[in-house]
Nucleic acid binder design. Structure first.
Length: 301
DNA sequence: TCAGACCCTCACAG
DNA sequence: ACTGTGAGGGTCT
């Protein structure tokens, strides 16, 4: 076995860490200069990436890095995934524009709770809410000397014993009762999140849909971002916009018809295809379609 | 299938 | 600067 180290280097190919961490699948990564800091489970991590490697640093020595390689899907080759995409102009443009974009494999509870908090919120606001939630109710994790404190994502049990008012103080608004009720369902074992791993994607989705605040979109986010069901295809306003503009510019299809289209057209790795279209729409397309923003005021200095 | 409600925050006009 | 307005990774009724 490997000796215990605070730092490890992973050789990677086609891995755009920045794009991956800002593509709206995880909400707890922060950029500091050329590094990214975040918490995975109970580990504080600092990451640095170069062309062909990712360097991870922790606060305490680590012997088994499986939690990290799993989260980042380090050993997944992107070639087979990209090859399974439909070969159309839009898909090719998205793949070119988002070269190295990856899907993470997150903790189911953190993913579920985060996406319950995501409805009709901008990503910056989701990040703020999740941050407040972790500061308020998450366990502190080890950080380097002198570093500001960092927190794990609060457990279902911990959140189950909060009140709606306390959760609303984290600025989550009407989502508070949803999160509270779902936390109680998970904490009492009424639904076993680990058990979903062995189920078919349809069965797992049906289980998630029973939770308050969880509809089709959020269920599919959890199926894809936490469990790795590659066929899950979350359809949100951005994907809807992408489908209408890129694939059906002159037809008026119902949301249901568009959903049906995604279930067959994008193939076995539809979830990955979705992530490329989503990031493409959010980053590249707006720059081309909308007018440049008016000059910003200089708030500093 | 179809609105409307739901909390709250930020960007953007005026 | 200050206030008004609209919309933001949806879900529920």
């Amino acid at each position: 076995m490997r000796t215990s180290e605070r730092e490890v280097v992973f050789r990677v190919c086609d891995y755009d860490l920045a794009a991956t961490l800002t593509s709206g699948q995880a909400f707890r990564w922060y950029q500091h200069g050329d590094t990214w800091e975040g918490v995975i489970g109970s580990h504080w991590v600092r990451l640095r990436s170069s062309q062909d490697s990712i360097i991870a640093e922790t606060a305490r020595p680590v012997t088994n890095w499986e939690w990290l390689t799993h989260y980042f899907q380090i050993h997944l080759g992107l070639g087979d995934v990209l090859a399974s995409f439909p070969q159309d102009e839009s898909m090719n443009s998205a793949v070119m524009a988002c070269h190295g974009l990856r899907l993470l494999q997150q903790d189911p509870w953190e993913c579920l709770a985060s996406f319950i908090l995501s409805s009709t919120k901008q990503i910056v606001q989701i990040r703020q809410i999740v941050s407040l939630l972790c500061k308020g109710y998450g366990e502190p994790v080890a950080v380097p000397p002198g570093h500001p404190p960092a927190f794990a994502f609060p457990s279902p049990a911990r959140l189950a014993e909060t009140t709606e008012a306390e959760l609303r103080d984290c600025k989550m608004g009407f989502r508070a009762p949803y999160l509270l009720k779902t936390a109680r369902i998970i904490a009492t074992g009424q639904l076993d999140l680990d058990g979903l791993r062995q189920m078919s994607v349809e069965r797992a989705r049906a289980e998630l849909l029973q939770l308050p605040g969880v509809g089709r979109k959020i269920a599919d986010c959890v199926l894809l971002f936490a469990y790795g069901f590659q066929s899950a295809f979350p359809v949100d306003v951005w994907i809807m916009k992408a489908l209408r503009e890129l694939y059906f510019p002159r037809r008026r299809l119902s949301n249901l018809r568009l959903q049906r289209f995604t279930e067959t057209y994008f193939g076995p790795n539809a979830g990955y295809a979705q992530q490329y279209l989503f990031h493409y729409m959010r980053t590249q397309r707006p720059l081309m379609l909308s007018k440049p923003k008016a000059g910003r005021s200089h708030s500093a200095a």
